[in-house]
């Protein structure tokens, strides 16, 4: 790519809309990974497997009948496709989690990794349903009849970030709830968590399924962005990118996943756009992963917990926040009582 091309890419709205959409998608997935792995301590290396299930489910059920040579194409509307994707990933997460969560942490990691690969192989081999290695070269998107190409991209960018905001609100609620504290407690010290009445094994399964359902909801966004689906898309690379972003941003912090994804993907894109003479093209490609590694090493050298940290998300800040919440709730209930009192008096008059 010449300097000119690099500059034109950076100044093109399409480039930024596309990159920002991708960041929104990765941010959502990484936030959910953080709930499971950062707070819950379940080291999941198969997150892309759930994404694959959701993506394929969505694509299969929403594709117009007759467009692809597959045995099942009900041509459902987009909203039904999203629900189907969430339901399906939830069920699969339950079925995978049931055996996998019985294993110790190190084995859980391997089992989830293996399952993700199994799903990919299934996608290749169930050609009747998935169109095999070729996959689908188009995906049903919402609002297609209302907007032009570029406008639709912008709309989907907004939708994607709306979803990311929802996921953030969910993780924020979790982090401040008894559920979130139970997650971190069982990660920190399982015997102690049990001694406080926390039903550790069920909590793990619930969390795995919750994350699965949510990933199923994000998967259609990924499909809208990508606009095709084939087994190659769901390689472990996706999982590794999410994990790298999580470690970079600060595992078990609350906003770290978003920050980590933004920094990592921006950096990756910029490295890719660096101008090199043609004879160095191969070197550039080879050095690319090294540059990401270097970024990670540098960040962790100076901030071992990542850009943000669990300690700063919780700790003293959590206590002050709670005190504030409690005070505000007390004020609100007093106001409400006052309001009711006025109403009663008004009625009496």
């Amino acid at each position: 790519m010449s300097t000119l091309a690099a500059i034109s890419a950076l100044s093109s709205p399409t480039f930024w809309v596309s990159l920002l959409t991708l960041i929104g998608i990765y941010a959502s997935v990484t936030m959910l990974l953080n709930v499971e792995s950062g707070w819950g301590g379940m080291w999941d290396l198969g997150i892309v497997g759930l994404l694959a299930i959701g993506s394929y489910t969505y694509t299969i059920v929403t594709n117009p009948p007759g467009e692809f040579e597959v045995s099942y194409a009900p041509g459902w509307p987009v909203w039904a496709g999203i629900l189907a994707a969430m339901l399906m990933t939830g069920i699969v997460a339950f079925l995978v989690g049931l055996p996998a969560l019985r294993a110790r942490r190190e084995y859980f990691l391997i089992i989830t990794f293996a399952f993700a690969e199994v799903f990919r192989q299934l996608a290749i081999n169930l050609g009747d349903l998935t169109h095999g290695t070729v996959g689908f070269n188009s995906v049903a998107r919402p609002f297609e009849s209302f907007f032009q190409r570029d406008a639709l991209r912008a709309v989907l960018l907004v939708v994607t970030w709306g979803a990311a905001l929802l996921v953030y609100a969910l993780t924020r609620r979790i982090s401040r709830s008894g559920y979130g504290r139970a997650l971190r407690a069982m990660r920190d010290n399982e015997p102690a968590a049990l001694s406080l009445g926390i039903r550790v094994s069920r909590l793990r399964l619930q969390t795995f399924v919750l994350v699965g359902v949510a990933i199923g909801g994000i998967a259609p966004l990924y499909m809208w962005w990508l606009r095709y689906a084939n087994p190659n898309v769901f390689r472990a690379q996706f999982t590794f990118t999410a994990w790298t972003a999580l470690v970079l941003g600060g595992i078990a912090s609350r906003f770290g996943p978003v920050l980590g994804v933004a920094v990592l993907l921006l950096f990756t894109e910029l490295v890719e756009l660096i101008d090199v003479p043609p004879e160095l093209r191969n070197v550039h490609v080879a050095v690319h992963p090294l540059a990401i590694g270097l970024l990670l090493v540098l960040v962790l050298r100076f901030r071992p917990e990542g850009l943000l940290s669990e300690r700063r998300t919780f700790g003293e800040r959590a206590r002050r926040q709670t005190a504030l919440d409690v005070a505000m709730a007390a004020v609100a209930s007093r106001l409400r009582r006052l309001g009711r009192g006025d109403a009663v008096r008004a009625e009496a008059l």
């Binding site: 979790i174 709830s177 559920y179 504290r181 407690a185 009445g197 909590l203 709670t322």
Partner: peptide
Amino acid sequence: GFPTMTVWESLQVAGASHNVLTGM
């Protein structure tokens, strides 16, 4: 104990609803 928590936080673990749905 729970090494990543402060004393106060670790005291908030017990007694809360731990369930995914009711806990939130």
